[in-house]
Design a protein around this nucleic acid. Structure first.
Length: 503
DNA sequence: CAGCCTTTGAAGCAA
DNA sequence: TTGCTTCAAAGGCTG
């Protein structure tokens, strides 16, 4: 894991991952290699599919063959450069040609300068902002809300990484440029899977084709999303899942994206999740009566459309059969019904407690965004393989690129905390223990995993894990004792007998 | 059909 | 404080 602050004690990763960036600054590399990167991707697809075969073959290779010479231009470096170049091109994907012919990206010309001369967001930029950040209120932000984001509890890499920081006075394009809109990548997600915070969904532009909405959608239906939208209070942002009393009390979790100067809300795009104001009052009181305060879905979990908050999974409650009551006398039936009512009430309260999921961490956000891309590039569907690739790509990201996701994750956690103040990850632990218990993962031996895989970052190449018992010696052989910082974690902490042990 | 696989990171928990 | 475990997403695979 790359360290974003160079070992400042942040929560961004372990120091041992610094190796990922040891070749930073090698940006000026051969373009021809980059051009062949796409071919390489295709070439290695099959190797991923035939992972087991590859593993068998490579396991017979000598260690020297597999070992890239440190400090020289290795395959890793080349691939890394290709990746970086591709990433660069994709970063600019909104404004440049698509990096992959198959994935034309939507051009939003005014996003490079999303602000009108008077300092307000242009309608297109607001549309985009709200589309990508459904909870984002592009008009109701304040300096206060931005200040509130500087949460000491959640250390942010932003204060360390220069080009990416929380403070974007009148500037939102930094957070915009990282996401592409693809109209080819098959990642149209069901609305209820759309996280209110996540900007990581590559929307199909078929879903927000400009133009007049069908007559039956006009007025009540979002012309972009096609999702019916509730009547809006003109003064209050529709993106805050706050109760009326709480409106204005909780700082906007995305205040860093909110421009300084207000501007009339662009009404063309609406987040599919409503606010408290859009949840009908009886439903709200019903929820309040059924659940502990902190468990009452903060208004966004139930939508007019019936679409729940993606972080909430309401378990199915089976209808209890009343057939067993047949044949009992009336008093018994009454008593039984009463008992049943009480029992089922308790049961329902238990079962209907929505399962609030953990907020996604940086890598999960990254995976969500990039999965479709990897699937398309590598023609893979198996998540395990895809995740391996994504894990490698994650390590190949620059600090700045990773910082974006750490920042997103931090905001996710922040918003999650605001939405579910009493929620704890422990709740989900308990939920699992009560019901079906997941089988424990089999224990991994040190070196059994892919600790060394980072030296083979081909995005589509599934690399053989080093499983032999001498794994710790590999890093020693690779980098020597004097470059301990380059060692993988297991190697660093596994004593090597012949040398008297490692720290 | 439940659980596994596979990744990283956050959080909980026991020692 | 440290180290281990669980859970977040995803979808094909497996018993």
């Amino acid at each position: 894991m790359p360290q974003l602050n160079g070992g400042g004690g942040d929560d961004l990763g372990a120091n041992d991952e610094m190796i990922s960036f040891k070749d930073e600054g090698e940006q000026e590399e051969k373009i021809s290699e980059n051009l062949s990167a796409e071919r390489d991707l295709a070439d290695v697809k099959s190797s991923l599919v035939n992972e087991s075969e590859t593993n068998q073959n490579s396991s017979s290779d000598s260690e020297a063959e597999r070992r890239p010479p440190p400090r020289s231009e290795t395959f890793r470096d080349k691939t890394r450069e290709s990746l970086e170049e591709a990433a660069k091109r994709q970063d600019g994907g909104l404004f440049k040609s698509p990096p992959y012919p198959g994935y034309p990206f939507i051009m939003i010309p005014d996003l490079t300068s999303p602000y009108l001369p008077n300092g307000s967001l242009s309608p297109t930029a607001r549309t985009y902002l709200q589309m990508k950040w459904p909870l984002l209120d592009v008009n109701h932000g304040s300096l206060q809300s931005r200040q509130a984001l500087k949460d000491a509890r959640s250390p942010s890499p932003a204060h360390i990484v220069g080009p990416f920081c929380l403070e974007f006075p009148g500037q939102s394009d930094l957070s915009l440029h990282q996401f592409q809109l693809s109209n080819k990548v098959p990642v149209v997600q069901h609305p209820h899977h759309v996280h209110p915070l996540t900007p990581l969904i590559t929307y199909s532009n078929e879903h927000f084709t400009p133009g007049n909405p069908p007559p039956h959608l006009q007025g009540d239906v979002d012309p972009k999303t096609g999702i019916p939208r509730p009547p809006q209070h003109p003064d209050i942002s529709p993106y805050y899942p706050l109760s009326p009393g709480a409106v204005g009390q909780i700082p906007h979790p995305l205040g860093w994206l909110v421009p300084q100067q207000g501007q009339p809300v662009y009404q063309g795009f609406r987040h599919p999740y409503p606010t408290a104001l859009t949840v009908n009052a009886s439903m709200q009181s019903f929820l309040s009566s059924r659940f502990p305060h902190h468990m009452v879905p903060p208004h966004h979990s139930l939508h007019q459309t019936g679409i729940p908050h993606p972080a909430i999974v309401t378990p199915n409650v089976k209808q209890e059969s009343s057939h067993s009551d047949i044949g009992l006398n009336s008093s018994t039936i009454l008593y039984t019904l009463h008992r049943k009512h009480q029992d089922s009430k308790k049961e329902d309260e238990k079962k209907k407690q929505p399962h609030i999921k953990k907020p996604l961490n940086a890598f999960m956000l990254y995976m969500k965004e990039m999965r479709a891309k990897v699937v398309a590039e590598c023609t893979l569907k198996e998540s395990a393989a895809i995740n391996q690739i994504l894990g490698r790509r994650w390590h190949a990201l620059t600090r700045e690129e990773q910082a974006k996701y750490y920042e997103l994750a931090r905001k996710e956690r922040q918003l999650h905390m605001q939405l579910y103040p009493g929620w704890s990850a422990r709740d989900n632990y308990a939920a699992n223990q009560q019901g079906k218990k997941k089988k424990r993962k089999r224990d991994k031996q040190p070196g059994e995993g892919n600790e060394h895989r980072e030296y083979f970052p081909n995005p589509c190449l599934s690399l053989p894990p080093i499983t032999d018992a001498n794994a710790p010696k590999k890093c020693r052989a690779l980098f020597g004792l004097d470059q301990l910082s380059f060692w993988c974690k297991p190697c660093r902490y596994t004593p090597v007998v012949s040398t008297g042990g490692q720290p």
